[in-house]
């Protein structure tokens, strides 16, 4: 009888590559019920939409373009009603709106975040500014339209002003709340460790308020789209809001729906972008949340 020894070769455990990790996650996701639930949710919604507009052609719904009409129009090389993914004007509208959103969001963030941080940090600064902010904030964006048209030249700047305005308030207020949410112990610790006032602002106020600031920016980008479209409907020569109202004026209904859907997707994309930037800037926050299992 012979004794047989088996040797096992151990290989060092290596961190899986990016691709392997991705495929593993994808497989796991497909095994879970979530993607299938999402798919059937979308299918159910589309089916109801179809049933109301094209299947049963219920009264009042028969004027609304249904999913089949919209889809065949949107991917048509020669769209009946002028707008599809193959027409240049469609992208002109998207680009015009995105450019405005970018400017409005940049101005609102650039002004609103420092303003809010200062308001949260300095009682005196807050005393100066808070009453004015609270008076201006409830005024609806549409009420600003005449002033905007009077005060700013051309088509472009009134629209950008209106989109900026709404998101400015959201951003400012959230940044202020962010500072107020910081635990007093961090300020005390910073004082103990010998920080100057400016160092407290840089090392405690700014990073401590960041989670709230980004929550504010998420809301702010949504509000910016909201007021942009309202402004484009009133005053404009291009843009998705203008496209919708122009279609309505000209009695073509499909571009209205195309415009709405486009707004939905573009809006989603921009807020995902803001979230991604936020997550990248707050790794500490993300990791703490991940450890708590959220």
């Amino acid at each position: 009888m012979t004794l047989q020894t088996t040797t096992t070769e151990y290989t060092a455990v290596q961190a899986p590559g990016r691709l392997r990790l991705f495929t593993w996650r994808l497989k796991r996701a497909l095994r879970s019920p979530r993607p299938w639930l999402m798919l059937s949710g979308v299918a159910l919604w589309l089916f109801t939409y179809w049933l109301l507009t094209e299947g049963l052609r219920l009264p009042r719904f028969d004027k609304i373009p249904g999913p089949v009409v919209v889809l065949s129009e949107i991917f048509s090389r020669t769209p009946f009603q002028g707008i599809s993914v193959f027409t240049e004007i469609y992208y002109d509208h998207i680009l015009a709106s995105c450019r405005r959103i970018f400017l409005a969001f940049a101005i609102a963030t650039g002004v609103g975040v420092p303003l809010g941080l200062l308001m949260g940090w300095s009682l005196r600064f807050r005393a100066y500014t808070f009453p004015i902010l609270e008076t201006l904030r409830p005024i609806p964006v549409l009420a600003w339209v005449p002033i905007a048209i009077l005060a700013f030249p051309g088509f472009e700047w009134p629209v950008i002003f209106l989109a900026t305005l709404a998101s400015l308030f959201v951003t400012t207020l959230n940044a202020m709340l962010g500072v107020q949410s910081i635990d007093d112990a961090y300020f005390r610790a910073a004082g103990c460790l010998g920080s100057s006032r400016w160092q407290v602002f840089r090392h405690v106020v700014v990073p401590g308020a960041l989670p709230y600031v980004f929550t504010g920016l998420q809301i702010s980008i949504g509000v910016a789209w909201f007021s942009l479209v309202a402004a484009e409907m009133v005053s404009g020569d291009l843009g998705l809001g203008y496209m919708i109202v122009d279609a309505y004026m000209n009695n073509v209904t499909v571009p209205m729906v195309i415009g709405m859907l486009t707004l939905g997707f573009v809006g989603w994309a921009t807020s995902a972008l803001v979230r991604a930037v936020g997550n990248a800037m707050m790794r500490w926050h993300m990791r703490a949340l991940a450890i708590q299992g959220r």
Partner: peptide, 20 residues
């Protein structure tokens, strides 16, 4: 005055969560 000659370690901890 607060100062680095007397440093407090806090009841609930006050390491800055945004710094390693």
């Amino acid at each position: 005055d607060t100062g680095a000659d007397r440093i407090v370690v806090f009841q609930n901890g006050a390491l800055f969560p945004w710094k390693t």
